[in-house]
Design a protein around this nucleic acid. Structure first.
Lengths: 344, 344
DNA sequence: TTCTCTACTGTGAACGCTCACAGCGTGCTT
DNA sequence: AAGCACGCTGTGAGCGTTCACAGTAGAGAA
């Protein structure tokens, strides 16, 4: 059966650029030019090609294109969380969705990759090199070699949150953790709290470190002493927050406020306070961080610091595409916002 | 500069099958055979090729392969939720992660696609046809034409939850909603509850319908009357659950149990009960559905019906790959499990 | 008028791979 | 001894696209 006859029965072979060219009465080259911006194409030809594309229902074969251009026109969203903590975190959804839709606007599909185990990490790295134009990296822990490796391999890359120890060589987009923490602690101070404790994020994550730094700096600004007994690091999980708060209550029963490094941990803190018979916010004020859905689910609803996740995701995509287009790496820091609810 | 010299400066051109062939002292064909299962290859050649692959760091160029095979060796995870409700739902994370890792085990990347708007839907459909081997479809609402369209287009497809009105033509994997609802309602009955209300899921979703059916059937089995005043449909959101419970309390203040169609709605129900001064579970028992993280976040922790999300995702992938491999569509229904906590 | 420049168009080659085929030698059957 | 089958191997063709190049026509300048 010849090729042109092969359209009566069975699944029709999808139309190629040749079919469009024939239909429009022009050559492959002209069709290709139309497909790639339409420069140096006469209005008549442009018109003919566009209507031919419409009539045939032609879609470019990306594999063929990628084979010759070397680009894949796709981007990986790489998640490297050993404990897959991020998946417990509702923020993740927002970020992932934001990146997906921002990329979709450019007709770029998002490949989701999860590197939980070492084997997965290797598999993903092998795939990324050569099959993807760039990487949106979500990985909080320092000691994670993946950012360095990707940068080394020359893969365009933008991280969510400042990757530790990468100098200024890799792009990242982050919320203003330090400023957000400062706003919250100052707010607690101005509400009259004087024994302000903190449950920090993991200290091997930039968010954990920066928010703690903001806490400490604001204490100093307010003339409050920095008391190590009031500082407990958590692990961004609900259970971690609960444990941290218990420890805190034991070490310093007189605290009247807790600044918690994430809303999820704050949920745990609330649970521990409730168990200890402390009323929130009357006895102890609790301030969270993230403004994730968890903040609304908490009882009482959490006063917290909003991270602009929608902007973070769109900026990540913007910076990545710019970098793929040849621009230099960039760092973007976005402002946070204090959200007042019932817990402080 | 000739091709073979082009390795001193700049980014090295990735090795091709030719390079491997030369390195191993065999032909392209033999390397290709090794790459595709190693049939009809002598042990010596197999060995030489494998070590050459290792030495050169060769990775197959999937674009070139796809161009000729017509397969893409990738799968789309398509989310069609107008309100993007699913993204609020923690179950989503588990499902998405499960699918990603199950596919990764087969070296198949997952493309995440979100069809919120009509334009996005069209874009995704255009991409899917021809660029993806199959689709994992997450779409709860009936009236959603996407399942029918994909099936029509001959794209291998497996839905999460039974797609309404598709006959037995499209594959799906679902939890045993009816059985799960039955277990919960029977449990409430056996704990002595006699005025058992329900906040159902949306009645244009299979889950909503089936769970309501299970509720109704069990009432009959237990000899309890079916009272329409005790049935309020919700929308799977926390706020919807809260509103539904308020309505319920108004219509029937004497209820002593509520079976809620999702954990997220159950959170809302708990909030409404608390506001109304009802103690849970003393005055009113609350049973959820899903066993999502929301169940643990609720106060009191929710007694609920566990959906086996990890198995759902792995079954979805299994069925999809089988179908891509030529097998017929299949329906898989997985058992649920009653999880007793504090709310009932 | 002639020349040059520009806008537009068509053509061959290549991207890296798989598939079908043909060519071998070896071991078995007849 | 001839025939045949089978395991293994190399080779040419082609997948659908872009890119570089060459070629054409028409407009404007000399």
């Amino acid at each position: 059966m010849s090729r042109t006859e092969q359209n009566g029965a069975g699944r029709r072979r999808p139309p190629t650029i040749h079919d469009v060219a024939r239909e429009a009465g022009v050559s492959r080259g002209t069709v290709s030019r139309v497909l790639n911006g339409g420069h140096n194409v006469s209005p008549a030809a442009l018109d003919a090609v566009q209507s031919a594309i419409h009539r045939t229902g032609y879609t470019v074969n990306r594999h063929a294109r990628s084979l010759i251009t070397g680009r894949s026109d796709s981007v990986a969203f790489l998640l490297t969380e050993p404990q897959e903590r991020f998946f417990e975190d509702p923020n993740f959804n927002v970020l992932l969705r934001g990146c997906t839709t921002a990329l979709a606007a450019h007709d770029i599909p998002l490949l989701l990759m999860i590197a939980g185990t070492e084997a997965e990490r290797r598999r993903n790295m092998r795939y990324i090199a050569g099959h993807v134009d760039g990487v949106l990296l979500v990985s909080s822990h320092s000691g994670d070699p993946v950012a360095a490796q990707l940068h080394e391999a020359g893969v365009p890359l933008v991280a969510c949150g400042k990757p530790p120890g990468q100098g200024s060589k890799v792009s990242y987009v982050a919320a203003d953790d330090l400023g957000g923490a400062r706003d919250m602690v100052r707010y607690l101070y101005e509400s009259g709290r004087r024994r302000i404790a903190t449950v920090a994020g993991p200290l091997d994550t930039p968010g954990g470190v920066e928010r703690l730094a903001g806490y400490r700096a604001t204490l100093a600004e307010c003339g409050l002493p920095y008391d190590e007994a009031l500082v407990v690091p958590g692990d961004y999980s609900r259970a971690g927050g609960e444990a941290a708060a218990s420890l805190l209550l034991e070490r310093a029963p007189d605290i009247d406020a807790v600044f918690v490094g994430s809303d999820l941990m704050a949920q745990g803190v609330l649970a521990a306070l409730e168990r200890a018979g402390r009323r929130v916010p009357q006895d102890v004020a609790v301030g969270g961080f993230d403004d994730s859905p968890a903040a609304l689910a908490a009882r009482p609803e959490l006063t917290t610091v909003r991270q602009p996740w929608d902007r973070i995701s769109s900026e990540m995509v913007r910076v990545l595409l710019a970098q793929i287009g040849g621009e230099d790496p960039a760092a973007v820091i976005l402002p946070t916002e204090l959200v007042r609810r019932d817990s402080a």
